[in-house]
Simulated scan of single mutants.
Amino acid sequence: MARVPRFLADYTQRRGFTTTVVSAERPSPGLLRVTFAGEDLRTREFSPCDVTAFRVAANDFRHYTPETPDPDAGTATVLFHDHGRHDAPGLRLIESLEPGAELDWCGLASARGFRWTSPRSALVMGDASTLGLMAAMAGRAEAEGSRLLAVTEVHEPDAEYVRKLLPDAVVLLSAEEEGAALDAWLVGTPAKEEIRRLAPEAVYLAGHGGSIQRQRQALRTLHGLDRRTIRTQPYWATGKTGL
C-alpha cells in the first residue's frame, strides 16, 4: 500500500472524525470485531462498499470496510481478519485497541469503480479479509429485496462462525494456495448452475489481488459474464506489506 508524505497524512487525518472503541471481541480464532461509537456515525450515510482509513504510521494508512453501521445508536462495527502476521501494521493497531481508546476514521467513501449500485441480483466473492464487506452487502441486499450470492474461502477454524454470519453464502475451506478454493468452485457444476440462476447484474471481486485476476477471467470465459458487470477491489497482494 502506497505511503504518503507526512503533511498529507496529517491533512487526511484532520479531515476525518474521531470515534471511541466500545468493545473488541474475537468471534472466531481468525476474526476480530471492533465496535466504534461517535456522533459522526449518527449522521454519515453508509454504502456497503464504503471504506475508511486508519492511520498506522506517520505516513501510512490501512483501509477497512464497516460491517454493520447503526446510525440510531451512533455505532459501527468493523470485522477484521487476523491473518497471523502480527508484524503487519494494520493488525498490530487493531490488536492494541481496547474499550475507551480513540481512533480517527479518515474518510468514508466507496472507490469510483467499486460501488453498490442496488442491483437486483449480485455475486460477491473473496477471502476472509472481505467478510465485513459481504456482511454489509447481505444486509443491504435484504433491505432492498435484492438477490445476493456470497462465496468465500476461510480457514477451517472460522468456517462454523462464518456460516452463521452469512447463512446463505457458499463457505469454502481455504487451500494452501490463496484463492484456490474459489478457483475450484468456479469450474464446478454447482457454480455454473447457481450463477446461471442468479444472472448477476453486478459482480464484486475483492481480497487477494492475484486471485481476483483469475476469478475475473473464469467468470468471463467459463460463465460468459460481461466484463462491464465485474467490479474489483484488491485488498492485499502476496509479498507486500499487508493489512
Rank of each mutant, 00 (worst) to 15 (best):
R42K: 01
R42Q: 05
T43E: 08
T43W: 08
T43S: 11
T43H: 10
R44Q: 13
R44S: 09
R44E: 10
E45F: 10
E45S: 13
E45K: 11
F46A: 04
F46K: 01
S47F: 03
S47G: 04
C49S: 06
T52A: 02
R55N: 03
R55P: 05
V56G: 07
V56Y: 05
A57Q: 11
A57R: 13
N59Q: 10
N59E: 12
D60H: 14
R62H: 09
R62E: 08
R62C: 11
R62W: 09
R62F: 08
Y64A: 02
Y64K: 04
T65N: 09
T65H: 06
T65P: 01
P66Y: 04
T68V: 07
T68R: 01
T68F: 02
P69L: 11
D72C: 05
D72K: 07
G74L: 01
G74C: 00
G74D: 00
G74T: 00
T75W: 03
T75K: 01
T75R: 03
T75V: 05
A76Y: 04
A76D: 04
A76I: 10
T77V: 06
V78A: 07
V78G: 04
V78N: 03
V78D: 01
L79A: 00
L79R: 00
L79M: 00
F80R: 10
F80Y: 15
H81V: 13
D82L: 07
D82A: 05
H83F: 13
G84M: 00
R85T: 13
R85E: 15
R85D: 15
R85W: 14
R85A: 15
H86N: 13
H86F: 14
H86Y: 14
D87E: 15
D87A: 14
A88T: 08
P89Y: 09
P89D: 11
P89L: 10
P89N: 10
G90E: 12
L91Y: 12
R92S: 14
R92P: 05
R92G: 11
R92T: 14
R92A: 15
L93E: 05
I94Y: 06
I94P: 00
I94R: 01
E95H: 13
E95S: 11
S96G: 04
S96I: 04
S96N: 00
S96K: 06
L97M: 02
L97R: 01
E98A: 15
E98K: 15
P99C: 11
G100V: 09
A101I: 08
A101Y: 07
A101T: 10
A101E: 07
A101Q: 04
E102T: 15
